[in-house]
């Protein structure tokens, strides 16, 4: 008898090998449909050592070994004790096993403080501060590595949450920056981001990494447990349980609106260069330099 390991929201059942085929084929389709690769690309995977980045790197490694593009991994160690140190170990093991070069960057090396130290000094939302640090260092180091694209492990759940968070907070202009390939406008200093797992649910990614036997921890960042995102995530998961297909519904309707959203908001979303560090910025001074200024002034 066939051992079923997963049934999707439409009721379709999968054995282990059927699930792996389904998962990989869907990610390959996403990559092709959205033209995520160009000939000669050097892709840098934003690696955390968690299930999403590990699944992304593994699948890209399979494709790239056949096509001849280059693949490396970049990990931002923001400094969250008891969490990031575990995922770094997993990332190192994974990259070694897969033969992927791993670079580790950190605010400690770059700015002489960790996220935890900054949080102790400044009363700011940890997820916002972490996002600022990570986005900045990711782009900065991707350029140092001569990357042409940065691949992130964002999945369907992440994107559905962000779409709704932007709606709830009235920040619809931020949603114009979302999508399987990000970037409303192009800028020579901003490396375009691709999201190969865009149509895979968080649960599907966890099943894939478990079936593949990757050593990853399935745990939430301790700083994020009470965040707005976690509230929205719980709401969406409750809805999905009662009305299967909700997550796909959010993303499919969002993707229908996205071209109009980008057209409408592109002129307002021009990327400029920060007057202090010359990195890409939405304002005169980028969020990272603002944060640095606040940190240095705080007692």
């Amino acid at each position: 008898m066939k051992k079923i390991i997963y049934s999707d929201q439409s009721g379709k059942s999968y054995t282990k090998s059927e699930f792996i085929r389904y998962f990989e084929a869907k990610v390959f389709r996403t990559i092709r449909k959205y033209g995520m690769f160009d000939k000669g690309d050097k892709i840098v995977v934003a690696m955390s050592g968690g299930k999403d980045s590990v699944a992304t790197a593994h699948i890209l490694n399979q494709i790239i070994s056949k096509r001849g593009e280059q693949l490396e991994a970049l990990l931002i160690d923001e400094g969250i004790p008891g969490y990031r140190d575990i995922t770094i170990k997993d990332a190192k093991k994974f990259c070694k096993d897969e033969g992927i070069k791993l670079t580790i960057a950190s605010p400690k090396k770059e700015f002489k403080f960790t996220l935890t130290q900054a949080l102790n000094k400044l009363s700011k939302n940890p997820c916002n501060m972490c996002g600022t640090l990570r986005r900045y260092l990711l782009n900065l180091y991707a350029k140092k590595l001569n990357a042409t694209k940065v691949a992130t492990g964002h999945n369907l759940d992440d994107e559905a949450q962000t779409v709704l968070m932007n709606q709830y907070k009235g920040n619809v202009q931020l949603s114009a920056k979302l999508g399987p390939v990000t970037g409303v406008t192009e800028h020579k200093k901003f490396i375009r981001r691709i999201k190969p797992l865009y149509f895979m649910t968080e649960k599907e990614v966890a099943i894939y990494t478990t079936l593949k036997g990757f050593q990853v921890i399935y745990t939430e960042c301790p700083k994020a447990r009470d965040s707005f995102r976690s509230t929205v995530r719980d709401q969406i998961n409750d809805l999905e349980n009662n009305y299967p297909g909700i997550k796909n519904g959010i993303i499919n309707s969002f993707l229908e609106m996205l071209p109009r959203l980008r057209k409408e908001l592109a002129p307002k979303s021009k990327i400029r260069e920060c007057e202090s560090c010359q990195e890409p910025a939405a304002k005169k001074i980028c969020s990272m330099c603002e944060l640095l200024g606040e940190y240095r002034q705080a007692k």
């Binding site: 997963y6 940890p126 966890a206 921890i217 939430e220 960042c221």
Partner: peptide, 29 residues
């Protein structure tokens, strides 16, 4: 959910000798 260390579908029946482990898939921030 794993049953006796093997991933399984939620429709699967269990008996008194089975070892069940429930793993949260929620991660990140």
């Amino acid at each position: 959910v794993t049953k006796n260390d093997e991933l399984c579908d939620e429709s699967e029946e269990i008996n008194s000798k089975d070892k069940l482990k429930i793993i949260s898939v929620v991660s990140g921030g």
